[in-house]
């Protein structure tokens, strides 16, 4: 039986340029530095989550694995913490290591208010982070075009979308 395909739709997002922290504790601004000019895939996690987040993280792990074979300087993966009160950079780093996250994959946290702004801008804020719906965003920091998956897309599907944005750049 075929699995339901992850529904993708064009997304209207606001990239907030809030100061955040990466998994090494380095300061990084979300819109101008983390996304910057890259083609990115963004998911939403918290380290205390044992259900959905390991699945989304494993999915990104697969995406990362495939990207390694091609040039990746233009592509980035970003995992944003839904629970910045708990997720210190050290905790995110530990969590990232469990999912074998490599260089082009940022794990971001920050002050609660600023994380909230970033998440709201992306349409991914929920008052109760434990009940966040699964969501993945893929987009291009140059063109400002974004795609939203309101489900857990398969790794291949995320890769296709990243490649589609890359191809669109070549056409322009």
């Amino acid at each position: 039986m075929p699995l339901p395909a992850a529904a993708a739709q064009d997304a209207d997002v606001q990239l907030v340029d809030a100061p955040l922290l990466d998994q090494d504790g380095n300061a990084i601004r979300f819109a101008s530095e983390a996304v910057g000019e890259h083609i990115v895939a963004i998911n939403f996690v918290y380290t205390g989550c044992t259900t959905l987040c390991p699945l989304t993280s494993a999915t990104f792990g697969k995406v990362q694995g495939r990207l390694k074979s091609g040039p990746t300087d233009d592509i980035r993966l970003i995992s944003l913490s839904l629970d910045p009160g708990t997720d210190t950079p050290a905790r995110l780093k530990d969590y990232a290591a469990r999912h074998h996250a490599g260089p082009g994959w940022l794990w971001l946290t920050g002050r609660r208010g600023e994380m909230e702004q970033v998440l709201k801008g992306l349409g991914a804020y929920t008052a109760d982070f434990r009940n966040h719906p699964p969501q993945v965003l893929v987009g291009d920091g140059q063109s400002g075009q974004w795609t939203r998956f309101n489900s857990l897309p398969a790794p291949d599907r995320i890769r296709q979308e990243l490649e589609r944005y890359r191809a669109a750049r070549r056409r322009d």
Binding site: T50, T51, S57, A58, K62, P153, A154, P155, D156
Partner: peptide, 19 residues
Amino acid sequence: YLAGSSEPVDAAAVPCAGC
């Protein structure tokens, strides 16, 4: 295997106890 994926992941990353 995750939904719709033809590539395996490490089963220990998504153990029964997680969910």
